[in-house]
Amino acid sequence: MREGLRAGPAVGAVAPFVAVLAHIGPAATWLPLLRRRRFPGLAGQGRPGHVALTFDDGPDPVSTPHFLDLLDGLGVRATFFVLGENVVRHPAQARELARRGHELAVHGWTHHRPWLPSPARDTRELGRAVGVVREVTGQVPLWYRPPYGILTSGRWAACRRAGLRPVLWTAWGKDWRQDATPASVRATVTADLRGGGTVLLHDTDRVSAPGSWRAALAALPGIVRDCRAAGLEVGPLLEHGVVGTDRAREAGRGEPVTSEAAPFRSTAPP
């Protein structure tokens, strides 16, 4: 009996740790190597002749229009992972994204860090974000990328309930940093870029270093030029054939790229 009484408090002390571990454990998919090798669909790997171009954190009436004008000039459409609160604040800008032919996806309602378990909040906020995108733009979002790329168990479950597919990235520009430059963003993207990859950039500095979006904007023409010089199309996730999606199988767009695909090499001039 005494041993049982002693074991009770010990089990009670361990239980919160187990709960937190179960909550944050799926966030290990943030690790690029693990994601590419074990979860290629989550990494955003698609058909080998295509690169998916994606932007996070908008829409922003100050910076997003510059990206839209530049993308028009480049003849490229992209996927914008928007925050629900920003769609509510700037509905005209969200509608403009759709009007110009870009795909809207969900980045959450806010850009908070999910360290404490709150599955009810995750479900409520993600469902709210999906509803706002549909109401404002008429688009039905297909994809979800969590803030900071951190997929907790609560976010996984909320994503499934909302009918979304989680997609992270295979290459990013680290364009949110104070020291980001057009050259550093372009070099960082191309260092990890392969055919079938998904590129992450940001069309706003709302949760980044002030003015950092300008580095991403200036790097964008070179990134697109690099892809085209390598014989790769650039477009939204909708056209990417992400590994494991029904759309990719139904479209019959060829076998998706594997983790052993040859690394991207640019032959375009800087």
Rank of each mutant, 00 (worst) to 15 (best):
Trp30Tyr: 10
Leu31Trp: 14
Leu33Val: 13
Arg35Asp: 04
Gly41Met: 06
Gly41Gln: 04
Leu42Glu: 07
Ala43Val: 01
Gln45Arg: 14
Gly46Ser: 01
Gly46Asp: 04
Pro48Leu: 01
His50Ser: 02
Ala52Ser: 04
Asp60Tyr: 06
Ser63Met: 09
Pro65Glu: 12
Asp69Tyr: 07
Gly75Trp: 12
Gly75His: 11
Arg77Gly: 05
Thr79Gly: 06
Thr79Lys: 04
Phe80Tyr: 14
Val82Ala: 13
Val82Pro: 12
Val82Cys: 12
Leu83His: 04
Gly84His: 05
Asn86Glu: 15
Val88Asn: 01
Val88Arg: 12
Arg89Val: 07
Ala92His: 11
Glu96Cys: 00
Glu96Trp: 02
Ala98Gly: 08
Ala98Ser: 14
Arg100Ser: 02
Arg100Asn: 02
Gly101Met: 05
Glu103Leu: 07
Glu103Asp: 13
Glu103His: 10
Ala105Leu: 09
His107Met: 13
His111Val: 06
His111Cys: 13
Pro114Cys: 02
Trp115Tyr: 14
Ser118Leu: 03
Pro119Ser: 08
Pro119Trp: 08
Pro119Ala: 09
Ala120Lys: 12
Ala120His: 08
Thr123Gln: 14
Arg128Ile: 01
Ala129Met: 06
Val133Asp: 04
Thr137Tyr: 13
Gly138Trp: 13
Leu142Cys: 08
Trp143Thr: 07
Pro146Arg: 05
Pro147Asn: 03
Tyr148Glu: 10
Ile150Met: 11
Ile150Asn: 03
Leu151His: 07
Thr152Trp: 05
Arg155Met: 04
Trp156Val: 13
Ala157Arg: 15
Ala158Phe: 06
